[in-house]
């Protein structure tokens, strides 16, 4: 019996090793302007995505 399915996600601990280029969009710029969320931001550095 399969009890647990793990979705494919970016490993945040791994991203600590090579992230932080800072090219991604400023959090609320260009969209909502009245609340903050970063979950919907895209990583701009595809080479570093891990």
């Amino acid at each position: 019996m399969e009890h647990i399915q793990t979705l494919n996600t970016r490993n945040l601990c791994e991203s600590a090793k090579n992230g932080g280029c800072g090219e991604c969009q400023t959090s609320c710029q260009s969209a909502c302007k009245t609340s903050c969320g970063i979950a919907n931001q895209q990583c701009e550095n595809k080479a570093e995505r891990k």
């Binding site: 600590a16 932080g20 919907n40 895209q42």
Partner: peptide, 22 residues
């Protein structure tokens, strides 16, 4: 829907996630 856009595989790195809105 803007707030339901969530890219589990290609979202922001942890630096972005802990650094505040800027």
């Amino acid at each position: 829907f803007y707030h339901y856009m969530i890219d589990l595989t290609g979202g922001p790195c942890v630096y972005k996630r802990i650094s505040g809105c800027g």
